[in-house]
Simulated scan of single mutants.
Amino acid sequence: MTAHGSSTAPADLRSTVARHWTATEARDWTAVASTLADGVVYDLPQTRERIRGKEAFLRFYREYPGDWHVRVERLVAEGDQVVSWIHARVGPEEMHAITFFGGDAEGRITTITDFWPEPYEPPAGREHLTERY
């Protein structure tokens, strides 16, 4: 993988993912749709859910409850893969997520896998090795 700001991925996929997040935050569903392949597959491993197809994906985003917002912290691209680190806010709750995107030859998003890690307290016994922040 490359550092933030540089990419060995096709420029179109990296920019497609950036447009995807910008359009998502703006609730511009037509623009979000333009970033997706018709057969896009969206996976959420923590809830063991899968959504197939552009229309179902768009409906999921449109119907997601609450006042939610996303901000891209970093995009990393390599080959036909782009990874984003986002900051999300749903009402008063804030969290970070890692999202993996796959793309096709036309630079459209074909796969999306969201990881929404839940914070937890570390196990006891390693305080002498770690720094908490």
Rank of each mutant, 00 (worst) to 15 (best):
Arg59Gly: 09
Lys54Glu: 07
Trp85Ala: 05
Val72Asn: 07
Ala56Ser: 11
Glu93Tyr: 14
Phe100Gly: 03
Ala77Ile: 00
Lys54Pro: 01
Ala77Trp: 02
Arg71His: 10
Ile98Phe: 12
Val76Glu: 03
His69Trp: 05
Glu94Val: 12
Pro65Thr: 06
Asp67Asn: 15
Ala56Trp: 04
Asp80Phe: 00
Trp85Leu: 12
Val83Phe: 02
His87Asp: 12
Phe101Pro: 01
Ile86Met: 08
Tyr61Ser: 13
Leu75Ser: 04
Ile98Trp: 11
Glu73Ala: 11
Ile86Asn: 11
Tyr64Glu: 09
Glu93Asn: 13
Glu73Leu: 14
Arg50Met: 01
Arg59Phe: 08
Asp80Gly: 12
Phe57Cys: 11
Ile98Asp: 02
Ala56Gln: 14
Glu55Trp: 01
Arg89Tyr: 05
Thr99Ala: 10
Glu73Lys: 13
Pro65Ser: 07
Gly102Val: 03
Ile51Cys: 06
Glu55Pro: 04
Arg74Tyr: 00
Ile51His: 01
Ser84Cys: 05
Gly53His: 07
Glu93Met: 13
Gly102Asp: 12
Arg74Thr: 14
Leu58Glu: 05
His87Lys: 14
Tyr61Thr: 09
Ile86Leu: 04
Pro92Tyr: 04
Arg52Gln: 11
Gly53Trp: 03
Arg59Pro: 03
Gly103Ser: 00
Phe60Gly: 04
Arg52Ser: 14
Pro92Glu: 13
Trp85Phe: 12
Phe101Glu: 05
Glu93Cys: 06
His87Thr: 07
Val82Tyr: 02
Glu63Cys: 04
Ile98Gln: 10
Glu93Ser: 13
Lys54Ile: 03
Glu49Cys: 01
Gly79Trp: 03
Phe57Ser: 13
Glu63Ile: 05
Arg59Trp: 08
Thr99Met: 05
Phe57His: 14
Val90Asn: 14
His69Met: 06
Val82Gln: 00
Ala88Thr: 11
Glu55Val: 08
Leu58His: 07
Gly102Asn: 01
Gly79Ile: 02
Gly102Arg: 12
Arg50Cys: 00
Gly79Tyr: 08
Gln81Glu: 12
Trp68Asn: 10
Ala97Gly: 09
Met95Asp: 03
Thr99Val: 14
Trp85Lys: 08
Val76Met: 05
Gly53Met: 06
Arg59Ser: 15
Thr99Asn: 12
